[in-house]
């Protein structure tokens, strides 16, 4: 189907053949990738032995029979990093459209300053986090 798409898009110049061709190739690669995994597991299915035993289906863990359930507690403190990351990632993606235009004619130093103000705000945030000891690991 993706192939069809590629063909039909190529036939239709109005749709912008380069762009759609590139992503049609991506779609085709997805098909190839899935095919690869399928072939690998089909071969595996044909080659592998199947000898079930209840011991084998026990969780391996550290080699000793598991105690308790499949859940262990860990540091909730990691979670702050997750928040920080999401916020900074949203920030960072703005750099990319900016990077493509800021040095071209008609933007210049003004755009640079705009971005520095933007990043400056977040750097202040990072400093605040640092000051507050969020980045320290106690």
């Amino acid at each position: 189907m993706v192939g069809q798409q590629a063909a039909s898009v190529a036939a239709d110049p109005a749709a912008g053949s380069g762009y759609f061709d590139a992503y049609a190739a991506m779609g085709l690669l997805a098909v190839v990738g899935v095919l690869f995994v399928t072939v690998a597991f089909t071969a595996n299915r044909l080659l592998r032995p199947v000898v079930y035993s209840p011991e084998k289906l026990l969780a391996y863990e550290c080699g000793v029979d598991p105690v308790g359930e499949d859940w262990a507690h860990t540091q909730v403190r990691y979670y702050v990093y997750a928040f920080l990351y999401v916020i900074f990632a949203v920030d960072a993606i703005y750099l990319f459209p900016w990077a493509t235009v800021f040095a071209t004619a008609g933007y210049g130093a003004g755009t640079l300053v705009e971005m520095f103000v933007f990043i400056g705000f977040l750097a202040v945030g990072l400093l605040y986090a640092w000051k507050k000891g969020v980045l320290e690991w106690t």
Binding site: A59, E61, G68, W71, L84, A89, A92
Partner: peptide, 30 residues
């Protein structure tokens, strides 16, 4: 999905590590 304490910890550490290192990578690429 492994139903294993150690695997879960590994998964958590993976996530924490990704979230810490993805950002410098994106910034450097920018």
């Amino acid at each position: 999905a492994s139903a294993n304490k150690f695997s879960l910890l590994g998964g958590l550490r993976t996530a924490a590590q990704l979230m810490s290192y993805e950002l410098p990578m994106v910034l450097a690429a920018a």
